[in-house]
């Protein structure tokens, strides 16, 4: 498993930007994934695939489907990083 370094949050913002309609500089924690960033549920899947590849996180599709905001996505990733 790849252990994420201290900059994982900013890397995660880059990953969110990659699958959303926004640039990384425009993304804020309070943004809603669907309404503000144009991400639908398939984008969430892309994101968790990227988190699996980059950080070795094993996040279930069901869990990701329940996340609605950028801060929620970060909290989900943090929970898995701390548990790893």
């Amino acid at each position: 498993m790849t252990i994420p370094d201290a900059k994982w949050e900013s890397r995660m913002m880059e990953l969110i930007a990659e699958v959303s309609v926004m640039k990384v500089s425009q993304i804020k924690p309070e943004h809603r994934l669907r309404e503000d960033l144009g991400m639908d549920s398939v984008c969430s899947l892309e994101l968790i695939s990227m988190l699996a590849e980059e950080f070795g996180l094993d996040i279930s599709v069901e869990e990701a489907a329940g996340v609605n905001t950028v801060s929620g996505a970060i909290a989900m990733a943090r929970k898995h990083i701390e548990a790893a």
């Binding site: 639908d40 549920s41 398939v42 899947l45 599709v61 069901e62 489907a65």
Partner: peptide, 18 residues
């Protein structure tokens, strides 16, 4: 499938968990 894709009938027919 747990997703809610606009054009997909799968969650209705085969439920929302994989």
């Amino acid at each position: 499938c747990p997703l809610q894709c606009q054009a997909c009938v799968l969650p209705l027919v085969m439920r929302k968990s994989i």
